[in-house]
Design a protein around this nucleic acid. Structure first.
Lengths: 212, 212
DNA sequence: CTGAAAGTTGAACCGTGTTTCAACTTGCGA
DNA sequence: TCGCAAGTTGAAACACGGTTCAACTTTCAG
């Protein structure tokens, strides 16, 4: 949870955050980041205030500006961090499937479990479309192109209908991603349905839809 | 375009808008609504200001409060209106398909054309998730349940694999809707790909995925 | 034609929340 | 142990934009 040490230099480079130089500073920055995730997740960007975040974190108002340039800067740092968390959670299960399409089924189930446990993260990434559009685009473009790459590789192995061109696969990837996101919103964030069961339904559709 | 006469009483009922009583009032309210669609679409909710909207509309600041309770009230009225516009555009083509699944293909193509022509509307509905969550939920729940109803009816006609239960169909409906929304974002709002071609790709997947 | 209801105007009010800053404390390297 | 760099503090300055309101204008039914 939270920003990993290696990332801080990068966050600093984007201008969103200023790296702490001591262990104490590091702890403080972490406290602010964690408090911000809660606050933004519960109240949304507009309703959240720096006062609220620093109070939650148990630090003074002014301390905030030691580590972040602005409220937007903080949000940006947060989105970058969470975008990675989603991938770090979903990524590892991809190798476990018996074939490419089975891996996608597992990935969706993992994503649904993750969404249910981290509704706040889900909401923050969604809200980035309006607070930090670049981060939003980057997140979904990266995600879609990874899906597309996996589908193409499955196609080479003969697991996917070879009638789908590279361009077709891009459309498929965005379609799958969109389906996953909306299903996550409806059946994990709003409700909590059985992740495995929901993933199985869609998996069946994809397998028949473009499996070889 | 804009709020239809019959809707105004309803908008008034939700507390979002106050119905004008004369022809002049009607014109003024319309000007504000149209200006708001532009402003919110271009700048997003937070960056938009009532001053900006009234200036764009060519009316005085105070006039705003003759027709709307607040900035949020205006936004709410707008979302309600656009949610209907999407349906009014997509709805008519549903009867034209040679079968249920062909109708869905046409609906996606119509939706993509609509999204390309009305990028601002697309963005406003998306942003309602944070400005007016109830309106957002209502919009997507209504949309999904209409898709689900059509799929079930197609299933009764034997056009869809009868192995899918009613609950399965709900998942499918949300999946299709999510796919449509993300494909619309990527291939209509951001880019503008050929709507028919994109719709054809997904249609092929759905037909093989759960067609009978 | 007339007057009351509807609509219009924009300066001023006001609340909120971001950002600054100078005094103060802590921690680490020499 | 000392001294300086890093970090902390919170009151106050500040910006911004939503909302109010009382004077004024237009509309339209009778």
């Amino acid at each position: 949870m939270g920003v990993k040490v290696d990332d801080r230099a990068q966050l600093g480079a984007t201008g969103a955050a200023k790296a702490p130089r001591t262990a104490r500073g590091e702890r403080t920055m972490r406290k602010i980041l964690d408090a911000a995730r809660e606050e933004f997740g519960e109240r949304g960007f507009a309703e959240s205030s720096i006062v609220g975040i620093t109070q939650r974190a148990g630090v003074a108002l002014g301390t905030f500006y030691t580590y972040f340039q602005s409220k937007e800067g903080l949000f940006q740092a947060l989105v970058h961090d969470m975008s990675e968390q989603v991938r770090d959670t979903v990524g590892p299960v991809l190798g476990e499937g018996v074939d490419g399409l089975d891996s996608e089924r597992r990935a969706l189930a993992a994503f649904l479990r993750f969404a249910r446990e981290h509704r706040d993260i889900y909401r923050i990434i969604d809200e980035s479309e309006f607070v930090d559009p670049t981060a939003y685009r980057e997140h979904y473009e990266t995600t879609a192109s990874r899906i597309a790459a996996r589908l193409r590789s499955a196609r080479e192995k003969g697991e996917i209908d070879s009638g789908f061109s590279d361009k077709d696969v891009d459309v498929l990837a965005w379609g799958m991603m969109g389906a996953n996101v909306f299903i996550g919103l409806r059946f994990a964030v709003w409700d909590d349905a059985d992740s495995e069961q929901v993933a199985a339904i869609m998996s069946r559709v994809w397998r028949q839809g473009f499996g070889a």
